[in-house]
Design a protein around this nucleic acid. Structure first.
Lengths: 337, 337
DNA sequence: CTGAAAGCGCTTACAG
DNA sequence: CTGAAAGCGCTTACAG
């Protein structure tokens, strides 16, 4: 790139100084409109491209924000992460920033290796996307760079965090089942596994409480072992009429199982999911579920990180972004039964 | 970041020059081992972080490579793109480079707006990932920056390209069907739609030719309209015993349809797909399919782009990366029939 | 409105 | 082995 056009080249051609060119191109005051136009036209003509590195060095900032995703979230069916990255980078661009997507591999996560984008000052701040190990959280906390947690949170830390409102989403969708006449409602998910599964459970529970429905312990159905691996879902002896699943994939598994047992959804059982990912539409019937508001999450995260880059002492706390229910065909109104 | 530690800080503390610090930290010769160790230790102690922007400016390069994906590929079930980005960025890192993922939105694609990472010299080269409009290809061709096309190609251009070997993959998987006794084999895909569907068709055709099986025109079954939208698959009057589908998603649709008609897979019909994406495992039975070698594609693309960054006149041509067949349960051996 | 000077943090080429 | 000087391309603060 040594051969590329600089402000100085433009300045020399026009017999002005590079200061003037800089002002003209950056729409700063102190240049006559006439000269500004001339400079801009010549820049265009010569194919001038701004040198971001020079500005970076001068200002001591990069205008890059790292978006870090642990490797294990890049597997099948996780297009959520690509979508949210897209939303983030679009928002960043509106503020004159760029996203650098960094996929943290499992080994580096275990060995607590910070990403090289940190060590080489490639970024002014970091958005951490997706649950990461406790130790890594601590490690990254020890480092003085603006950071945001997105889509997960850690109880022991006071990092500014943007998450989806799991509690409220599960609460709302359980309300919806109750409105459709269901009172025997099970929750499917290992409630000790992740904070989002737990919070969704609590939202479900609150809905029951509000409707004076007693929580039946046998209606809390496990879906995965302590290491997160899905296990075969065991149905209780006394069956509910509806299932609130902690995510669409588990709802999909459940529907498959119910069908194999000869049941029909939603005629015999209503089933709802969470996330509105591919499993929601691939299931037959398609699932009523809670959609995460990706746009809003990205927008908020970007707002926070830029706020912190500009003023490292700013605090935003933990913000929850509400999702919305997507109504499809997996719920039946049984009120008239 | 103005307050961060610089080489000069380290130099002053040690009473040496910053040149020496630079040499020591970069493992260049011209520093005694003793001094080098001292410098490295102090750097560590002070939490020195290298300033990539300064190096960039000095050398006129950024050590960033843009990976550009058109927006429409970030939808449901396309985790392929995140995976390949991951592989690319890992390979880049091995060479001291970084990936910048840039999602080109549909509007910018239509209006032929080049990404801002180009205009601001944020990257030294570009990997274009996923079929992009002809006009945009032309636009980006007009611009003098090292570039690689990945996972698609354009017949009229001579850009260096890395694609999966569609022809060979379809050829091999059709051979496999024939080895399992099938002779009436249909191909499912609109062969005028994309180059990969067409190439896969040709691989299928070659396999037929080699086995002296006549191509039956009725066995070429359309799956989408000219705008790429899936249409209902129409089965021919005389039915084949096996279907080669141009992708897993279409294979999934086909299996669903066959089941609705009361048929069983693979007992009544064998079905194979291509891509080995989520549809391959979500289908019941899971599909025998062709897996794309993401690692190898990424590695090759990175090798090419860095080669071109270092020497812009280097040419690599069009390289095809072979996939491999993943054997699952959607094919039945009917030889003994 | 216009521009000379200084500086951001590094590296290269050269001198000692 | 060590370092003074120059320069990468921009912007800021100031002078005219």
């Amino acid at each position: 790139m040594k051969n590329s056009v600089t402000m100085r080249d433009i300045a020399e051609r026009l017999g002005v100084s590079s200061v003037t060119v800089s002002k003209a191109l950056n729409d700063k005051e102190g240049v006559s409109e006439e000269l500004r136009t001339k400079i801009k036209m010549l820049a265009e003509e010569l194919g001038y491209r701004f040198n971001a590195a020079a500005k970076s060095m001068k200002e001591g900032v990069t205008y890059n924000v790292g978006v870090i995703i642990p490797e294990r979230f890049t597997g099948l069916s996780q297009s959520f992460y690509l979508k949210i990255y897209q939303a983030i980078s679009k928002k960043l661009e509106e503020h004159g920033y760029y996203g650098m997507l960094y996929i943290l591999d499992t080994e580096d996560e275990e060995q607590l290796n910070l990403p090289r984008i940190y060590y080489e000052q490639k970024v002014d701040g970091i958005i951490l996307l997706g649950q990461i190990s406790k130790d890594y959280i601590e490690k990254i906390q020890s480092v003085d760079i603006p950071k945001i947690f997105l889509d997960f949170y850690d109880e022991h830390s006071d990092v500014d965090t943007v998450i989806t409102d799991n509690f409220y989403g599960a609460y709302e969708i359980t309300n919806y089942l109750i409105k459709n006449g269901h009172r025997k409602i099970a929750y499917v998910g290992n409630i000790y596994s992740t904070s989002s599964i737990q919070d969704r459970f609590l939202g479900y529970f609150k809905s029951l409480l509000e409707h004076r429905i007693k929580l039946n312990e046998k209606f809390i159905i496990n879906d995965r072992d302590e290491r997160g691996k899905y296990i075969d879902i065991e149905l209780p002896d006394e069956l509910p009429t509806a299932f609130v699943c902690n995510c669409d994939q588990v709802a999909h598994n459940l529907v498959t199982k119910l069908k194999k047992l000869g049941y029909s959804v939603p005629d015999d059982f209503s089933v709802v999911g969470f996330d509105n990912d591919i499993y929601a539409t691939i299931t037959d019937p398609p699932l009523t579920t809670v959609e995460v508001d990706i746009e809003e999450m990205a927008k908020t995260a970007v707002q926070f990180i830029i706020g912190k880059i500009k003023n490292k002492h700013r605090k935003f706390g933990r913000v929850q972004i509400k999702g919305r229910i997507i109504y499809r065909d997996s719920v039946k109104n049984i009120e008239t039964r």
